[in-house]
């Protein structure tokens, strides 16, 4: 068996300037090529987990460990994690006026290549065009400023495009489906499916509040997070049960220590 992609053990974390842990002992293992859905009510700690994995400076890990391909992820800066192969698709991607998507992505690709190994402009443009064709995106998209004045759907498509170009080993998708109408949801789901199909080893942690996206992106595992811990794990049938019964039946497990 290959080394797991991501191992999270008894992870506790809090907002930097706060005293109370939001994550209260998270355990999770993601193998290469698997899609994990992480569900749970608002405030259960799903987005916090995504940000902690990505290395957001606003959060502090108080105990536990996170291994990425066997390496201690918590010792790495956010940019090092990205270059190592971790990708976070943001729930609310930042807008960067004045910087085109093409320029931004070329800088990101070159940051991976290191000094003297930079991809030349034409080779990069070819790669970008190829990825955009794969995701059925219009060429003009790349000349727009990063997320500047984008609709919710466009922002999420831009996240998927970045994921396609940067080719991570692990993609953490933080509520990528929230705020999307059904058309946008299908387009984004198609993008994610295209990428998992193209890279059989790509591991995905799909964080979502709703079951809706799981009708399009089929997870191998479903987990439920409540009160800062994963309280239930299973297959797609778990998502169906949550859809039918809500989260109440798990309150007891969540309250337990």
């Amino acid at each position: 068996m290959a080394q797991p992609l991501l191992v999270i053990r008894d992870l506790h974390a809090k907002v930097e300037d706060d005293d109370i842990d939001i994550l209260k002992g998270v355990d999770l293992v993601v193998e290469p090529g698997n899609v994990h859905a992480l569900m749970g009510p608002n405030g259960s700690g799903k987005s916090t987990l995504a940000k902690v994995i990505a290395g957001h400076p606003g959060y502090e890990v108080t105990s536990g460990e996170v291994l990425f391909q066997g390496e201690n992820l918590l010792e790495m800066e956010a940019d090092e994690r990205s270059r190592a192969g971790v990708f976070l698709a943001f729930q609310y991607p930042a807008e960067i006026p004045g910087v085109t998507i093409a320029n931004f992505l070329r800088t990101a690709v070159n940051a991976r290549a290191g000094k003297g190994e930079e991809t030349d402009v034409f080779a990069f443009q070819a790669t970008l065009a190829e990825k955009m064709a794969l995701l059925k995106m219009d060429d003009s998209f790349a000349t727009r400023y990063v997320n500047d004045g984008f609709s919710g759907g466009e922002k999420k498509r831009n996240e998927v495009l970045q994921m396609a170009v940067l080719e991570p080993a692990l993609a953490v998708m933080d509520e990528t489906d929230s705020g999307l109408d059904i058309d946008a949801l299908q387009i984004v789901s198609h993008g994610v499916n295209t990428l998992t199909k193209a890279d059989k080893d790509l591991g995905v942690l799909l964080i979502t509040h709703y079951k809706r996206i799981l009708n399009y992106v089929k997870p191998d595992f479903v987990h439920v997070m409540m009160n800062g811990r994963i309280v239930e794990s299973g297959g797609t049938e778990l998502a169906d049960k949550l859809e039918a019964q809500g989260y109440d039946w798990l309150q007891e497990a969540a309250a337990g220590v």
């Binding site: 290395g55 990205s82 990101a108 940051a111 991976r112 970045q162 940067l166």
Partner: peptide
């Protein structure tokens, strides 16, 4: 802006 900075760092830019 902190959010812009983190967004760029999370894409591997130093």
């Amino acid at each position: 802006d902190d959010d812009q900075m983190f967004y760029l760092l999370s894409r591997g830019l130093t």
